[in-house]
Design a protein around this nucleic acid. Sequence first.
DNA 1: TCACATTTGTCCGTATGTATC
DNA 2: AGATACATACGGACAAATGTG
Lengths: 234, 234
Amino acid sequence: MMAQFKPYKSKRSFEEISNEIKTHIFQGLLKPGDKLPPETEIAHQFNVSRQTIREAMRILEQCGFITIQQGVNGGPLIVDTILNRLGKLFIDIFHFKKISPNELTEARFDIEKVMLHHVIDRADDSDLEGLTKNVRRAKEKIKNNKSPFGENIAFHKLLAGASKNYVYVIVIEAIMAVVSDFHSKLEKVNFERSRKITKYHEDILEAIIERNLERSVSLFEKLLVEVRAVMLGQ
Amino acid sequence: MMAQFKPYKSKRSFEEISNEIKTHIFQGLLKPGDKLPPETEIAHQFNVSRQTIREAMRILEQCGFITIQQGVNGGPLIVDTILNRLGKLFIDIFHFKKISPNELTEARFDIEKVMLHHVIDRADDSDLEGLTKNVRRAKEKIKNNKSPFGENIAFHKLLAGASKNYVYVIVIEAIMAVVSDFHSKLEKVNFERSRKITKYHEDILEAIIERNLERSVSLFEKLLVEVRAVMLGQ
DNA sequence: TCACATTTGTCCGTATGTATC
DNA sequence: AGATACATACGGACAAATGTG
């Protein structure tokens, strides 16, 4: 049987238009910070109706390439919130597929532990400084009896950056979005556990500064125990 | 300074409507295979205009929750193409962030190697059967002088399934989408390398059946060399 | 503070294309 | 082949938001 050539699906103008604009972004002709003309103007340029443009905007918005503001000087603005969108999609997937906290935690730490190899090899002074500041801020929050949750999440994103492999940045960003979403639905957050987690972060950072892979991985194992408990609401 | 409370952004009806429908899907009130009423009917039910519904549909489409068909008995259909959408978004990210094939390959094999631990532990007969069939199909294609590329990609997705951790399924699905996209833009595919890759897959499968972690990981290292070469267009 | 201009958000009516029966 | 049902697309209108003078 011959290959079936599908009609490339897109007979839909709004799809072609959103793809066109995407291409412009990929080629750097449109950069974050640039403004698109108002809907009516875009519609005029593409010679389509405003409705068609609006549907194209919905797609670009959903991809994280534009935000839209009303009013004078408003209109579509090119932005880079694509990792944000990825996080949202991950959250959707986890809801839809009903993935357990245990699965998430297992895979997360698996991945972070192999990532740690690269961090130990490649973290530079700027990375270490960022991590140090992160831990300091977390400890201050604890002193003030506030939850260091935001900082604890950020710690792992900073680690991903220090791996110098952007794929890890993407994957960890997505996973951490799910972790955050999960936590936001927990009734109580055990403060003592949060304190312990920050303490482990401090120790892990120390091990990284010493370029001590073995110790950092072993500390990660201990961290895993705490995080797993938190994820189970204990 | 007091905390700034943003107006939760969504005063936009199409957003609220798409969220409403999403919630129905998450709660299982709408399942893949179910059909939504036509636009006019949905518009009537929500008491909004058709344009508003159309924009909500664009969002749901982009999330991978619905497809839309024209014609009699057409309309919005609940589907589960969310992993597909994730792959597309990953491809966008890789284009946008201009991530190198080397980064992708490094992280990919890091992750697959730790995943392999779980595969060795947890793969059941059905998994092994699926993998066996996959390798058989790939070898047949090679015999017929066809590229086994599709099967080679599928091999890794099957491995992810055999890890019994759905997080790996998601991550590998996303990564493989990027790999496929990358390959589709390569001019020539070195047939000899494809043959070697399939051969390694066969050996890896054998090692998994023997529950031989060490051997399977070491074979993965060799596979990495071949894949890296392909990714560099060599 | 108060208009005013700009731009998105939303509505209605209508016409056209497309797939199914 | 023709009728039906649905999405796609157009044009015009008004409301709501937002920055400017």
